[in-house]
Simulated scan of single mutants.
Amino acid sequence: MAYLTAVVTLFGLMSIVNLILTFGVVRRLRTQEDGSTPAAEGDPFQGSGLTVGEPVGSFSVHDTEGRPVTRDSLREGMLVAFLSPGCLPCEELLPGVVELARTAGPGQVLAAVVVDGDDGARPDAFVAALSPVATVAVTRLGGELTRAFEIKGLPTAVRIGPEGRVAARGRALLRVAHSVRAGA
């Protein structure tokens, strides 16, 4: 009988500790900086500082073919992918992004190849892989394009919604094939 009492008491104490830890986790989730749980958008890593519904900032860059790319050239449903040579997760996601762009069709993916002059990584392999299937712009971290999207980490992507607003954001967009509206 003494063993049964000890087991029930131990079980009760463990339940109380578990309850206290659960309350701690809930409290921590409620006090997050942006007020939302990252899991709500399906990706704990949100590389863009823009929130869903917020407009993309103004920018003007040229793609690798010399054509101008501006905020006004972004269409609803378009995916803007930010990748960087020398970034291991970016290199691992590159083949998937190429396939995603191929599936989405012409003009539906803007691939921003972000270079950092400090690491010496060259964008050539990324440009060569992405150019046949996507519009490619080479930019710097802190450049006009990355500032317009408030990029805070790589790799990441932003799905463009109506009126140049963010429809979705995060690394998960680079992994999952999304349907693209025809003619958008």
Rank of each mutant, 00 (worst) to 15 (best):
G143T: 11
R122Q: 14
A111F: 07
A112Y: 02
V136T: 00
A104H: 01
L94T: 07
L100V: 04
S131K: 10
P89A: 08
V97L: 02
V97Q: 01
V127I: 12
Q108K: 13
L93M: 13
A121I: 08
D119G: 12
L110D: 14
E92H: 12
A111M: 06
D118W: 09
V114C: 04
E99V: 00
C87Y: 04
E99I: 00
E144R: 14
L141N: 14
T103P: 02
A111V: 05
G86M: 10
A101C: 03
G107I: 00
A137H: 07
L93C: 00
P123Y: 10
E91C: 00
D118M: 08
C90G: 03
V138M: 06
G120S: 09
P106N: 01
R102M: 03
C90D: 05
D119R: 15
P85F: 01
P85K: 09
P123G: 13
A112M: 06
A128Y: 08
A125T: 15
V115T: 15
D116M: 09
A101M: 03
V115H: 02
L93I: 04
P123F: 12
A111T: 08
P106I: 00
G96A: 07
S84F: 05
L88Q: 10
L141F: 15
V136H: 02
C90V: 11
G117Y: 05
D124L: 13
P85W: 01
A129I: 08
C90I: 07
V127D: 03
A101H: 03
D119Y: 13
D118N: 13
P89D: 02
L93G: 01
S84P: 03
L93E: 15
L110E: 12
A112S: 09
E92N: 12
A137Q: 04
A134P: 11
V138S: 06
D118L: 12
T103S: 12
L130N: 11
V115N: 01
V138Q: 04
P85N: 01
A104I: 00
G120C: 05
P85S: 02
A112C: 05
P106M: 00
V97F: 02
T135K: 08
G96R: 13
R140F: 08
T103L: 12
V114I: 07
